[in-house]
């Protein structure tokens, strides 16, 4: 249901942001292959369980997010030190947004569509998960429904990713002005795009910003939950996910 990226009056920057997005099918095949490799290893060593599989999937998704960022407009111009600071600050928001946007754009009611293309029934998750995880999934589902009602499209998600990534509040940025300028441009492009596609434009744009703050608090809770599971040794180690977790908690 998304309009063609180059439709009439499409803000140029929105088109640029959209072109940076990875191809969903390629991503799905790449991560599925990687997960299968992991599972063959597990057959020899004994299957560590669903939660570990989800962590490997999250780690692989995080790798694809870093790949998206480092090849993206504006971000690829930044020094590596600034790139690291920005990603350390917002990685969990981008990870949760990746999961949520997949449900809004491609998912079906009552099930969770994984990055590998597989589907898991939400009722199964609720029955297997503990209270904290079940609460996070429930809150995520509510955010999916809000964004679904708004009929968010790929263009808007592409803008939101840049809004999250280019956060001028991150400390000690060498190129603070560039980061601030990109965030302002991304906000302007999103405002222009939402006002072009919806009658009550300020309402939609403001509602999107409210959803962004809900996403921020949800990702902080998810990070804390993951860190607790890590401290009890339940998260596979020596990967990007663990490194990013430590980056914020060290």
């Amino acid at each position: 249901h998304s309009s063609s990226p180059q439709g009439p009056g499409m803000p140029r920057l929105v088109t640029e942001f959209l072109l940076c997005d990875p191809d969903e099918l390629q991503l799905q095949n790449k991560i599925s292959a990687r997960i299968q490799q992991e599972q063959t290893g597990w057959r020899r060593l004994g299957n560590p369980g669903t939660f570990s599989l989800m962590c490997v999937m999250a780690d692989q998704t995080l790798l694809s997010i870093v790949e998206w960022a480092r090849t993206s407009i504006f971000f690829k111009q930044l020094k590596v030190s600034d790139q690291m600071k920005l990603l350390h600050s917002c990685w969990s928001e981008l990870l949760i947004l990746d999961i949520i946007s997949r449900q809004v754009l491609y998912g079906r009611v009552g099930s969770l569509l994984l990055v590998t293309g597989q589907e898991v029934q939400l009722s199964d998750i609720a029955s297997q998960a503990g209270p904290t995880l079940a609460g996070l999934v429930q809150r995520g589902q509510e955010l999916v429904e809000r964004l679904h009602i708004l009929k968010l499209d790929r263009q808007e998600f592409a803008c939101i990713k840049f809004l999250i990534l280019f956060n001028p509040d991150v400390k000690d940025l060498e190129e603070h002005q560039l980061v601030e300028s990109v965030q302002e441009q991304a906000e302007g492009a999103l405002l222009e795009y939402t006002s072009r596609t919806s009658s009550q434009h300020l309402g939609r744009f403001t509602h999107l910003l409210l959803c962004l703050s809900e996403l921020r608090s949800l990702s902080t809770l998810a990070e804390d939950y993951l860190y607790c599971r890590h401290l009890s040794g339940e998260v596979p180690c020596n990967n990007l996910l663990i490194e990013m977790l430590h980056a914020k908690h060290s």
Partner: peptide, 18 residues
């Protein structure tokens, strides 16, 4: 011995097509 660069840094510094 220099500190091992982080995985994130290695990813960001990797050649474009890797």
């Amino acid at each position: 011995e220099p500190e091992e660069p982080s995985l994130l840094k290695k990813l960001l510094l990797a050649p474009a097509n890797s």
